[in-house]
Amino acid sequence: MASADEVALNAPHAPKEAAKELFHTALHRIKHEVIKSRHDWDKHEPRMWARAASLSDAELTAFTIDDDLVEVRSGHDSGADYGAIVFGKIRIPAINDEEGQGFIHVRLHDPPNRGVDDVIFHSIYTEEGPEDGKGHHEWYKAIMTDDAPLKFFNE
């Protein structure tokens, strides 16, 4: 798997048509994985998706690519013909609380030379704060703020 050292990402920018097409291809899977992630985390650490606690699955995933994919970055693995790794920041329209609007960060893989038919959903970015000395993290979050940078992640 590519690491941050092996992939030079371009600067964050508004999505162009090619990026929108990639994310459209993966939209169903992205929504499925958002719901799955929330349900999995809610079993042992509900703080991960706390900003969405009052939302139904339908409300949480009521985003569209055309309206809510607000930023993308991409890069290629320098050591192999792996294809492109594409990161996207997607607004969750139903979240606008004291922290501001809510966003998820998503990673896709676009293998080389096959168009969008083989786009692979990779992951949703989540963060765990520092440990408190008792083996617990101080905070968890899957929903980012507008000022959270779209950066390389492997999760």
Rank of each mutant, 00 (worst) to 15 (best):
57 D>T: 07
111 P>N: 04
98 E>V: 00
119 V>Q: 06
51 R>V: 04
93 P>F: 06
139 W>R: 13
98 E>H: 10
143 I>D: 05
82 Y>M: 04
58 A>V: 05
150 L>Q: 09
145 T>L: 00
120 I>E: 15
98 E>N: 09
142 A>R: 08
89 K>G: 05
115 G>I: 03
14 A>W: 00
81 D>Q: 07
1 M>V: 08
51 R>M: 11
69 L>K: 11
138 E>N: 13
109 H>F: 01
101 Q>H: 07
85 I>M: 01
154 N>W: 06
3 S>V: 07
133 G>A: 14
30 I>D: 06
155 E>R: 04
112 P>K: 02
33 E>C: 09
74 S>M: 12
32 H>Q: 14
134 K>Y: 15
93 P>Y: 05
41 W>F: 15
134 K>M: 12
80 A>C: 06
80 A>V: 07
133 G>P: 11
52 A>L: 07
68 D>K: 06
78 S>N: 07
105 H>P: 04
53 A>Y: 08
14 A>S: 11
110 D>L: 11
148 A>M: 04
115 G>P: 05
150 L>G: 09
124 I>C: 03
96 N>A: 15
27 L>T: 09
7 V>I: 14
60 L>V: 00
38 R>E: 00
139 W>N: 14
83 G>F: 14
116 V>P: 06
129 G>L: 07
143 I>G: 10
91 R>V: 02
128 E>I: 06
39 H>L: 09
90 I>S: 01
53 A>W: 03
136 H>V: 04
45 E>Q: 05
80 A>F: 14
34 V>A: 10
48 M>I: 04
33 E>D: 11
70 V>W: 02
88 G>M: 05
102 G>Y: 01
150 L>P: 09
48 M>D: 00
104 I>D: 02
134 K>Q: 12
63 F>Q: 00
107 R>T: 15
133 G>L: 13
1 M>G: 15
142 A>W: 02
118 D>Y: 13
9 L>H: 00
6 E>C: 08
140 Y>T: 01
96 N>Y: 10
113 N>G: 12
45 E>N: 10
98 E>L: 04
147 D>K: 09
131 E>T: 15
126 T>D: 00
11 A>R: 04
93 P>M: 02
132 D>S: 13
10 N>S: 07
2 A>T: 09
34 V>T: 08
25 T>R: 11
109 H>Y: 01
76 H>D: 07
132 D>N: 15
68 D>F: 03
119 V>H: 07
80 A>R: 12
113 N>L: 10
34 V>H: 03
58 A>N: 11
32 H>L: 05
129 G>R: 07
101 Q>W: 01
7 V>N: 12
101 Q>V: 03
146 D>Q: 14
79 G>R: 10
16 K>F: 00
112 P>S: 07
98 E>W: 01
123 S>Q: 02
